[in-house]
């Protein structure tokens, strides 16, 4: 049939539904009459199906990587206003060629924070930058891997990110502090938490650092970390919120060493407040199981001339 060639050329557009009403009519009526063109249409459909099979679907991990990268880019973008002519590729090159070694080698001065790695990022401090809203783009864009104090008073923080990054600043820098406070709660790495708590201990005069230590001493899964946090809180054992934390340690911690220290700290000084006495009495009443703790309680209460039962 003389129309066959013209019809076959239009089959793809027919399948895509991109023919005009009239064109479609003409082809449909030809197909009704022409068995060869119907076969050609069938092959055209198979061709389409083959194309469907060829489609590359991005993996979920690629999507996640893209989102994480973008969150970081956007934070950088918003944090550092750049002139319009400074192209993205320039910055990409900057980012790719920038290596942490330079900052690591930097001499004495402030704190240096180093960021390495990539990862199943979990935690991005909400105030890491002024633009941390972008952190919402990803489940988490950065995670503190480990921290390291240097003799000069600097601190290095290693961040897990989609790419290496160094954050540098003094401990009184809010961004640095925020990273440290985040690292102190990193659930995946007790070593990191211990190192971080060591650093935070030197700054326990600041209330938010103390809050972090209080959090650690009560909530950290690792007794070693709790012990370190307790060390940092020792000089502030008279502060009400520290005393409340120590009381919780005494009542709830499973580690006898920590609990004994808590008793010592709570009962240090000439006068022991009635609340502490009450706590000790409560422990005795509920039949304290840890012998050393029980003994310590008993001795303190005796020294206070307090009843072993009630006050």
């Amino acid at each position: 049939m003389k129309d066959c060639k013209a019809v076959r050329e239009q089959l793809a557009l027919l399948l895509y539904g991109e023919l005009s009403f009239d064109e479609e009519e003409r082809i449909e009526s030809h197909l009704d009459a022409c068995v060869d063109c119907r076969a050609a249409l069938k092959r055209e459909k198979e061709l389409h199906a083959a194309f469907d099979q060829y489609e590359a679907t991005p993996s979920p991990s690629l999507l996640r990587d893209c989102r994480e990268d973008l969150a970081i880019r956007l934070m950088e973008e918003a944090a550092v206003p750049r002139p319009a002519h400074d192209g993205w590729w320039d910055r990409l090159i900057d980012a790719l060629t920038w290596r942490p070694t330079g900052a690591l080698m930097r001499p004495v001065g402030a704190l240096t924070l180093m960021a390495i790695g990539f990862g199943a990022a979990r935690m991005l401090p909400a105030s890491l930058s002024a633009n941390a809203q972008f952190a919402g783009l990803v489940p988490g864009a950065a995670r503190v891997r480990y921290v390291e104090p240097a003799s000069d008073g600097k601190i290095q923080i290693v961040l897990d990110e989609t790419r290496q990054r160094i954050v540098s600043g003094r401990l009184d820098d809010q961004q640095i502090k925020t990273l440290l406070l985040t690292a102190a709660k990193d659930p995946s790495d007790p070593g990191l938490r211990a190192e971080t708590v060591d650093i935070l201990n030197t700054r326990a005069q600041s209330a938010d650092v103390r809050d972090a230590l209080i959090y650690s001493v009560q909530r950290d899964q690792n007794a070693g970390v709790r012990m370190k946090a307790l060390d940092g809180l020792k000089p502030y054992a008279q502060e009400p919120e520290v005393r409340a934390a120590l009381t919780q340690v005494l009542l709830k911690d499973s580690n006898p060493g920590l609990r004994t220290q808590a008793i010592d700290l709570l009962t240090k000084g000439s006068s022991v407040d009635r609340q502490v006495i009450g706590t000790l009495q409560e422990l005795m009443l509920r039949g304290e199981q840890q012998g050393y703790v029980r003994e310590r309680c008993r001795r303190v209460l005796e020294a206070m001339n307090a009843s072993l039962e009630t006050y």
């Binding site: 991005p58 993996s59 690629l62 990587d65 893209c66 990268d69 973008l70 880019r73 956007l74 973008e77 993205w88 990409l92």
Partner: peptide, 14 residues
């Protein structure tokens, strides 16, 4: 994947 990510980043930055 690398090129796709590049395009993704650049597109949304723009």
């Amino acid at each position: 994947p690398e090129d796709a990510n590049d395009v993704y980043q650049e597109a949304f930055l723009r």
